[in-house]
């Protein structure tokens, strides 16, 4: 770690109200939570008015908008359904993200109590609390999400780097000639130019190239 430079005396002190306005972050242990509360039924109303047009009445997701509830036990499925209930490790992230960045296109319009209520409703939608539950600053940290233990810090240094930090084969590396197993052209999901080529294909530089033998 390099030496830290000497201060130059630039900038000015941040005022408490400025910090309060911009630092709304909530940490996993509940640090940063404001005073407030909200219950499931209030959350259902607020969610219905602000969120359900994308995420569905039951947080199940409409069209291809994100699914917020369900998917329990699917994390080893071929196509896992990763939701707040099935995947997210901390409730703090739900409060924090909803409060600051949702609804999509109208962020930072939810009050503290609205956000508690929506968070309570999302817990209910995921089958994690009863319908009479009230979420408060004080009981927030008692909620443990189902997948709280589902994550571990990057371990590539132990599980991958030793395998890949070896002198690679340079000659006679294949036991048999290569065989094509997957072709993107068969899926045909790439944007195309008018002539049917993948979009952005380089234009031909000579007319001759169209007819020249390979």
């Amino acid at each position: 770690t390099p030496a830290v430079a000497e201060p130059l005396g630039l900038g000015r002190p941040a005022l408490p109200e400025e910090i309060a306005a911009w630092d709304a972050t909530v940490l996993p242990d509940g640090t940063g939570l404001p005073e407030g509360s909200g219950d499931v039924l209030t959350g259902e109303d607020v969610f219905g008015a602000n969120c359900a047009s994308c995420h569905g009445e039951f947080a199940e997701g409409l069209d291809s908008w994100p699914v917020l509830a369900g998917g329990d036990g699917t994390l080893t499925d071929p196509r896992p359904v990763k939701t707040i209930g099935s995947y997210w490790p901390y409730l703090s992230t739900v409060y924090d993200y909803v409060h600051r960045s949702m609804p999509f296109g109208q962020a930072q319009t939810l009050s503290v109590d609205d956000t508690y209520a929506i968070t309570a409703f999302l817990l209910y939608s995921n089958g994690l609390v009863e319908d009479d539950f009230t979420l408060t600053k004080d009981n927030f940290a008692t909620i443990v999400m189902p997948n709280a233990e589902g994550f571990y810090p990057d371990d590539r240094a132990e599980t991958e780097y030793p395998l890949f930090r070896v002198e690679p084969c340079m000659a006679d590396c294949r036991p048999a000639p290569p065989e094509v197993t997957k072709r993107a052209s068969e899926l045909n999901v790439t944007p195309r130019d008018g002539d049917g080529k993948p979009a952005g294909t380089l234009p031909p530089l000579t007319a001759a190239s169209e007819t020249a033998p390979a």
């Binding site: 994390l75 995947y87 997210w88 993200y97 994550f151 571990y152 590539r156």
Partner: peptide, 23 residues
């Protein structure tokens, strides 16, 4: 902080159903 972009997103599912974080 374990924000949304380092829990829900930018975490990498492994075959046992757990996920790497902070990759």
């Amino acid at each position: 902080v374990e924000s949304r972009e380092e829990t829900s997103k930018y975490t990498d599912m492994m075959p046992d159903g757990r996920a790497r974080k902070w990759t």
